[in-house]
Amino acid sequence: MALAIFNLADPSAIFVIFITSLWPTIINTALGVSSVSQDFIDVARVLEMPRWRQIYKIILPASLPYIFTGLRISVGIAWLVIVAVEMLTGGIGIGFFVWDEWSRLNLSSVFLAVLVIGLTGLLLDFAIVQIQALVTHRRPATSNS
């Protein structure tokens, strides 16, 4: 549908990547804002705190873990969609490389490319975790299983 609307591969690809990766961040941000304790909001009202300051001092800090969770999911989805779009549109990129090597039955190159795709995804996730630690001044919770 995006290709029919834009008539060009690049704008269509950017639109598809944007529209597929946007929703986890929006949904998690909404969840984070709605999960702010009503007690904090009530205290801000009692102190007659302006609405912009409530957002900056109470709502945003309480929502940041949710926002970063949404960003981590969105980046993962965007990375997968980028690879898939490159497979479909052709030309350049790791997705095109995987498709081209698969067509040539060069499986060792396909496995190497899949490894590179996975490692790049891990590095992107690690980078967001580091940014989250800098912004929120704490490490995200991890499971010790």
Rank of each mutant, 00 (worst) to 15 (best):
P24Y: 06
G76D: 07
Q38N: 13
H137M: 06
G95V: 09
T120I: 09
W99R: 12
G118T: 12
S63G: 04
I92Q: 11
I14K: 11
A4I: 08
S35V: 01
F111T: 04
F6W: 05
M87K: 02
I14L: 13
V129P: 00
L31H: 10
A84V: 12
V129R: 15
I5T: 12
V75S: 04
V110W: 09
V33K: 02
I131N: 01
L134V: 08
S145Y: 07
A4D: 08
P24I: 07
L134S: 11
V36L: 06
F111I: 10
L124R: 03
A133T: 14
L22Y: 11
S21I: 03
L80D: 09
V98H: 07
Q130N: 09
A4W: 03
A44E: 08
V129I: 15
F40W: 13
W102F: 13
D39L: 13
M49K: 10
Q54G: 08
V81E: 05
L22K: 03
V110Q: 01
I5K: 01
I117M: 09
V110Y: 06
G90W: 05
V129D: 07
P50M: 10
D10Y: 12
S109C: 01
R53E: 15
I67L: 07
V129S: 09
L31F: 13
T120N: 07
F40A: 11
L119S: 09
I131F: 12
I27H: 05
I77M: 00
H137Y: 10
Y66K: 00
I41T: 13
L88Y: 07
D42A: 14
G32S: 08
V98L: 14
P50R: 09
I77Y: 04
S21Y: 07
R138V: 01
V83T: 13
P11G: 02
G70F: 07
